[in-house]
Computed example of a mutant assay.
Amino acid sequence: MDQGTQMRAHLCGIRTAWTGAADAARAVSEIADAIGGAEIAQLVVFFSPDYEPAALNRALKAHFPGAATAGCTMSGGFSPAGGLDRGLVVIGFPAKGFRIVSTVLDAIGHLDVERTASAVRSLRRTLEPHGPDDRRERRFALSLIDGLTDAEETVVSAIAWALDGIPLVGGSAGDDLTFRDTVLLHDGAIHRDAAVLLLVETDFPVQIFKSDNFEPTSTKFVVTASDNEGRVVHELNAEPAAREYAMAVGLDPEGLSPMSFAAYPLAVKIGGEYFCRSIRRMNPDGSLSFFCAVDEGVVLTLAQPCDIVAATRAELSRLDEALGGLDLVIGFECVLRRLDAESRQVRHGIAELYRRYNVVGFETYGEQYRAMHLNQTFTGIAIGRVPAPAGLA
């Protein structure tokens, strides 16, 4: 087993494991060896885009023959041992203490909202077979969405509507900022232009969360020309978008890069709260492609990053207190947050927090939280250390 392959057994029965092995079959073999004889009912996996998905599927089936699987490509992973630029991250749920059902939503680029909502409601009924809903506080939903379909807003809205209050978190599949091919897995099948949805009911205390580290400035941009469906902004303040943005942040338009966009995020105000609308890339015609849909007429505010370590520490500390101690956090973190942390040389501080609070997950092309698709945010599900009281079971 590679020295880089590690496993952690959590009090709730979940096993988390990760490896930097370059080959998919070897990575799964090492993860299986690390997990040992633990009985796993559901695997959730995040993997490098250069893994061959079919080989990964074969290895998962061979080493975990009784487990359901769900997963996606990532733009990097993270674990209690720190960041993982490439490799495989695995979360293994036991049958005891967790009841999980899942489905695939196909062709999300042309989503049939009614059909999607019907599929989600059917899945929910499978999890809720016993009449009155008295276990709602111990249910949550996880979404994994193809990050290159530009369909997250529609998908998340349809799912959240049909979930009827079950809290949703998740992430958009990435591919190391190449924007060529993102892949999802579900029970041995490979999917693109799709989303995977898992509904979970557990005997343990849980809470979803989101954390960001920016505050608005006084600099505003009005989107005066855009292609909302393609997530492309052509003009800001009636000027070419890239040039207007670059002038506002004091950069040469020709030098704009993912690092620039991470350091100078844009945000939109919704219901009195600001949410990031991160830039994906500058296009040859001077337009800007975004990770989220941006409507014409929307006012974007230039945001100023705050201390990312302090903001993350505050949120994890709050969750730790609220749940009576954190056993595990499954997280979905925007890849731009990692770039920002690296540029400010504070990634080690984030890694220390993830070690202390048992945080595992992947770096995304977007994050889901309840009915919203977000950027430059850290979302996830926190699982407490102690089972719920027997009287509530």
Rank of each mutant, 00 (worst) to 15 (best):
P265E: 05
E296C: 08
V268R: 01
Y274H: 06
I330M: 11
L251Y: 05
Y245P: 11
G324P: 09
L339S: 04
K269P: 03
S260T: 15
L300P: 00
M259W: 02
L266P: 04
R344G: 10
F291R: 04
R344E: 15
L319I: 10
L266F: 04
G255I: 00
V232F: 06
A241W: 03
A322Q: 05
G286D: 08
A267L: 10
E235T: 11
E342S: 00
N237W: 05
A267F: 07
G255T: 11
V249D: 01
M259E: 13
P240Q: 07
R313L: 12
I308H: 09
R281K: 15
R344Y: 12
A262E: 06
N283V: 06
D307S: 13
C292D: 07
L326Y: 10
A238H: 10
S343P: 05
L302A: 05
E235R: 10
A238K: 05
A322W: 01
P258Q: 09
L319Y: 04
H234M: 07
S317M: 04
L326V: 11
E296Q: 14
C276F: 01
E273S: 10
G255P: 02
M247F: 08
E321N: 12
I308P: 07
R344T: 14
L236F: 03
E235G: 02
V298N: 00
C334I: 15
A322H: 00
E254H: 14
A238R: 08
L328N: 02
E254R: 13
L288C: 02
D295T: 03
V268F: 00
A267G: 15
R318W: 09
M282W: 00
G325C: 13
L328Q: 06
R280S: 15
L236P: 01
L326Q: 10
R243W: 09
E239C: 06
D252N: 14
S289R: 13
V268I: 10
E315P: 03
A238F: 09
D295M: 01
D327T: 08
D252L: 07
D252R: 05
V249A: 03
A310I: 00
C306L: 15
Y245C: 05
I270H: 00
G286L: 07
V335S: 12
R281V: 13
A262T: 08
S289A: 14
V232R: 09
M247W: 08
V233T: 06
A341G: 07
G324A: 06
R313K: 15
L300H: 02
A262S: 13
G324K: 07
G325E: 12
R277A: 11
G271D: 08
F332Y: 15
L339W: 06
E273H: 10
E342A: 00
G324W: 03
E239P: 02
L300F: 04
Y264F: 14
S343R: 13
A248D: 04
V232S: 05
R338D: 14
G271W: 04
V294T: 06
Q345S: 13
Q345C: 08
C334E: 15
A238G: 04
